[in-house]
Design a protein around this nucleic acid. Sequence first.
DNA 1: CACCAGTGAGAACGATCGTTCTCACTTCAG
DNA 2: CTGAAGTGAGAACGATCGTTCTCACTGGTG
Lengths: 187, 187
Amino acid sequence: MEHEDPRTRILDAAEELFYGQGIQAVGMDAVRAASGMTMRRLYQHFPSKNDLVEAYLLRRDGRWRASLAVHVSRAGGTPREQLLSVFDWLGLWFAEPGFRGCAFVNSFGELGATTPVVAAAARHHKEEFGGYLAGLAEAAGAPPATAAHLTLLAEGAITTAALHGDPTAAADAKEAARLLLDAALAG
Amino acid sequence: MEHEDPRTRILDAAEELFYGQGIQAVGMDAVRAASGMTMRRLYQHFPSKNDLVEAYLLRRDGRWRASLAVHVSRAGGTPREQLLSVFDWLGLWFAEPGFRGCAFVNSFGELGATTPVVAAAARHHKEEFGGYLAGLAEAAGAPPATAAHLTLLAEGAITTAALHGDPTAAADAKEAARLLLDAALAG
DNA sequence: CACCAGTGAGAACGATCGTTCTCACTTCAG
DNA sequence: CTGAAGTGAGAACGATCGTTCTCACTGGTG
């Protein structure tokens, strides 16, 4: 993997470090070492740490949502089953080694108050996720309020799984989602 | 308020700064200035920043849960109404000026990976909160699974309200909680 | 060959942080 | 009064960070 695009190598190293340890806890020299770059080349690609942080968040947002969409579309079945498969995907994510919650929630808590770009990236990520769930819910014939409820469940599952280091939050959230969908589609 | 206990003055200043800006973003000199102390006196009461952070989290945990318990107990009514009043209290909290999400989730994302004391405080806070909801749910005749579902809703509402700066997440969560309770108590 | 543009490796710089030290001053005991 | 003990105010210290600079070297061009 050493012949990859330098930008990709830097972002891979930055993502692992930033996500795993927090952004402020990781110095540029650690990113340089982990990516096998020199300082000069690192700063050629990302003129400041802020630029690197922004690129890290943007790339992760795209990849995270694309991975979710792939899983849901492959789940097939009815729209209702697709909607519920979101929580299966969350369960897979929670069980990944090194899972440490939502990168956007974490970076928002750390830098949201002082770095507008981080706050905006976090908001954008959550809005896109909520909008995606709303689309799935509409296809399943559920009202918008139900979509909001499922979004809260997913959000709570992410935080709970991160804090407890326990992926069962995904199954709990899925069960609650099923009950809410039943109630919404029956009424 | 200048004649208050020095320890309280320091913790008040530290809490406002740490919660509002993040822990790493706030230097000890800022805490000193905001509390009207000298460096010497600040370090007399808290020998290191780690000690101050730990005390900040412990005190906030106690006050947060006590405030919730007072609100719920004053809500009176049936156990079911008490359980739902948790979400009313969340709505009040979300609307407070300077609300920026859960201090424990924020500090966990920032320091949880590198500072065990912070990770433990965050876990303890969430466990206590989940246990409290479980007790209310049991009194209301709801099964433990329902308590877990409501905990996820509350957790999700906190994160969502913080990111969007919009307190309506509490009302959404309350509505979902009502539906889940209805389903659980009917079955 | 001479020359130049760019690189690798890492030192250097200025700022900031957590923490400790200095020192003039006060207070009180004898 | 003399001296011991403690304080306020802030400078100082050592570490670390983000960022830039140095310098010897390489590869290609005339």
